[in-house]
Amino acid sequence: MDMELFIKYGPRILHGLWVTLELVGISLAIGAVLSLPIAMARLSKHKFLNAISYGYVYFFRGSPLIAQLYLVYYGAGQLRWELQDIGLWWFFRDAWYCTITVFALNTAAYQAEILRGGILGVPKGQLEAAQALGLKPLVTFFKITLPQAMVASLRPYGNEVILMIKGSAIASVVTIFDLMGETKLAFSRTFDLEVYFIAALLYLAVVEIIRFTWERMDNRLTRHLRPANE
């Protein structure tokens, strides 16, 4: 890539990378918080909770992220006066808030399913042992079930992080210029395919850092499950 291009678009692309990380980081954190009650509702025997959480997960996993983003962003734009009446327009006016909301709700659905799978995977014997020790259900859940469910969920959770990083590239359709948005813009002005190559390398680097971190975490958290002499 020639220097002029690099000086002009380099900082913008790096800024785009930062936007991507910020977007994904915040959404994942909010999604993680939301996923716990959703997962519990999915597992609950309460009919209403079960139906609602099932519907929620079904919707967010079953429709494309880009459609959800369009629906919220341009949908909110058309409901401006109604939203203003209930004092929520300032929130939906902002493209950043809209995007975070959609991303967080979307990843919450996936994370809830991951967590649910992890919880169901905890051996029954563990719960029976807890019961035999006289532990209360809540203590059993938070001290016995959840920690083990989270260890089991770690790998799929890492996949979800990587999917979000790549999926976040659609934020540029609502004027949030993330890594992909800045790259496309630079390309449309310079027609230099190298900018896509650089963007791919940046995505790759981020994904590799995550993969490496996850491997280390997994190794550490599952060391009690391996034979001592390995």
């Binding site: 341009y74 909110a76 734009g77 058309q78 401006r80 006016r93 493209a95 359709v173 004027t175 210029f177």
Partner: peptide, 18 residues
């Protein structure tokens, strides 16, 4: 400066007050 993919989307956001 906010950049849109199409002109109609920019216009829609002017109409909605964004």
């Amino acid at each position: 400066i906010k950049l849109y993919k199409t002109q109609d989307e920019a216009n829609a956001d002017l109409a909605s007050g964004r």
